[in-house]
């Protein structure tokens, strides 16, 4: 390699390294803003700002879905396998919403600890399999909640 090319290669390498470090630092600084949702444990610990709109994500606890009043309002428990919070939502739920399924709810925390959601999204897991196989496996799988 000629000295001129070596110099150019070094410069390009330095540029990529510099940009990489800058972006890594920026992302670290904004780490909490880049999280799409809080986990129930973080909510119980009081991490999300009080009275503000935020998202909480976790798994719908099996057997916890209630419809008080029999209307469009639904109440269920949301867990990350360490802590559980109660979520209340009025509206149409997505197709994938069911017990044991990961979901993300957007709303506010009421003073009594109930999370009142105005949007519920289903979080699909990374497993793909035919219905027969799913019937055999049926193993509960914890949802990953952040690094």
């Amino acid at each position: 390699m000629t000295p001129a090319r070596k110099k150019r290669l070094m410069l390009v390498g330095l540029m990529i390294f510099g940009v990489g470090v800058a972006v890594a630092l920026a992302l670290r600084a904004f780490n909490s803003n880049l999280m799409f949702f809080y986990s129930p444990t973080q909510v119980v610990a009081g991490e999300p700002p009080k009275g503000a709109l935020f998202r909480v994500g976790g798994m719908v606890v099996k057997g916890s879905i209630q419809r008080p009043g029999g209307g469009m309002t639904v109440r269920f428990a949301l867990t990350d396998n360490r802590n559980t919070i109660t979520v209340q939502y009025t509206g149409i739920l997505p197709d994938l919403f069911r017990e044991g399924q990961g979901i993300v709810a957007k709303g506010r925390l009421r003073p009594d600890g109930v999370f009142v959601a105005d949007e519920v999204l289903a979080k699909h897991d990374e497993n793909y399999m035919p219905p027969e196989v799913a019937g055999i496996l049926k193993k509960p799988k914890g949802m990953r909640t952040g690094p």
Binding site: L34, M35, F36, F37, Y38, L121, Y128, P130, G146
Partner: peptide, 30 residues
């Protein structure tokens, strides 16, 4: 960042299925 975004942060998008170190979490026929 695109590739690891689902690992580093909470996202609505699911995690990697095929490109992870253990067995892919997808049936062979799929």
């Amino acid at each position: 960042i695109i590739h690891y975004s689902v690992v580093w942060w909470n996202t609505l998008h699911q995690g990697p299925t095929v490109t992870r170190f253990d067995k892919p979490a997808i049936a062979t026929s799929m």
